Simulated scan of single mutants.
Amino acid sequence: MDDRILEVLNAGLVLSPTIIAYNIDKSREAVGRRLSELSKSGLVKRIERDRYEITERGSAYRTGELNVDELEDE
């Protein structure tokens, strides 16, 4: 699910968990939980209440420039 969330956000849009959930066919609650974890890892950034965007770190993760091991080391 994380990859799908990052893929949707990679379009350069600021989106709510509800819109992301709709686009990846998952529940809003599940997407909200994953966004919280992705935010802790620095892959997405909360812009304002219930609005998120992908970070440079998130884009690097999507393109393979940053791997899972590097995320766990921090």
Rank of each mutant, 00 (worst) to 15 (best):
M1P: 07
R4E: 12
I5V: 13
I5M: 08
I5A: 04
I5R: 03
E7C: 04
V8I: 15
N10T: 08
N10D: 14
A11C: 10
G12E: 09
G12F: 11
L15W: 02
L15E: 14
L15K: 10
L15I: 08
P17L: 04
P17F: 03
T18M: 07
I19R: 13
A21P: 04
A21D: 08
A21T: 09
Y22A: 10
Y22K: 12
I24Q: 02
D25E: 15
K26F: 11
S27E: 07
E29A: 10
E29M: 05
V31C: 07
V31N: 01
R33F: 10
S39E: 15
G42T: 07
G42R: 08
L43W: 06
V44C: 03
V44K: 04
K45D: 10
R46E: 15
R46W: 00
I47C: 13
I47S: 05
E48F: 05
D50L: 04
D50N: 15
R51H: 11
R51Y: 12
Y52T: 05
Y52M: 02
R57S: 10
A60I: 00
Y61D: 06
T63V: 14
E65V: 01
V68F: 14
V68M: 09
D69A: 11
D69V: 06
E70K: 10
E70A: 14
E70H: 05
E70N: 06
D73W: 05
D73V: 11
